[in-house]
Simulated assay, not measured.
Amino acid sequence: MAAWARRQEGGTLRPPSEPLTQREKEAAALIAAGLTNTEIGEELFVSLATVNPMRPTSNAS
């Protein structure tokens, strides 16, 4: 989860001192609630291409 929290658009890692964006926090909460990528996309009004990099690889749906 720590690596995901530091991931920037494009898949590169950002410094751990850089806080999550509001959108990343929203996505993390929905992931923690057990929503699928499709459900998260619908909830946040974004495409699957936007949601997929937000989910840790080990928990991908």
Score class of each variant (00 low, 15 high):
residue 1 M to G: 15
residue 1 M to C: 15
residue 1 M to P: 15
residue 3 A to C: 03
residue 3 A to W: 01
residue 4 W to M: 04
residue 6 R to F: 00
residue 7 R to I: 02
residue 9 E to R: 14
residue 10 G to H: 10
residue 10 G to N: 13
residue 12 T to D: 11
residue 12 T to G: 07
residue 13 L to Q: 11
residue 13 L to R: 13
residue 14 R to D: 12
residue 14 R to I: 03
residue 15 P to C: 02
residue 16 P to F: 02
residue 17 S to M: 02
residue 18 E to H: 10
residue 19 P to D: 14
residue 19 P to I: 09
residue 19 P to E: 10
residue 20 L to V: 08
residue 20 L to C: 13
residue 20 L to R: 14
residue 20 L to T: 12
residue 22 Q to F: 02
residue 25 K to F: 05
residue 25 K to E: 15
residue 26 E to K: 08
residue 26 E to D: 14
residue 29 A to Y: 00
residue 30 L to W: 00
residue 30 L to F: 01
residue 32 A to P: 04
residue 32 A to H: 07
residue 32 A to L: 08
residue 32 A to Q: 15
residue 33 A to H: 11
residue 34 G to S: 12
residue 35 L to T: 10
residue 35 L to G: 11
residue 36 T to Y: 02
residue 37 N to F: 02
residue 38 T to D: 13
residue 39 E to W: 00
residue 40 I to C: 01
residue 40 I to Y: 00
residue 41 G to C: 07
residue 41 G to H: 03
residue 42 E to Q: 12
residue 43 E to H: 14
residue 43 E to R: 15
residue 43 E to Y: 05
residue 43 E to S: 15
residue 44 L to M: 15
residue 44 L to G: 15
residue 45 F to C: 08
residue 45 F to M: 06
residue 46 V to T: 09
residue 46 V to A: 05
residue 46 V to N: 02
residue 47 S to I: 02
residue 48 L to A: 08
residue 50 T to Y: 06
residue 52 N to I: 03
residue 52 N to K: 09
residue 53 P to N: 07
residue 53 P to C: 03
residue 56 P to S: 14
residue 56 P to G: 14
residue 57 T to Q: 12
residue 58 S to P: 00
residue 58 S to W: 00
residue 58 S to V: 02
residue 60 A to T: 08
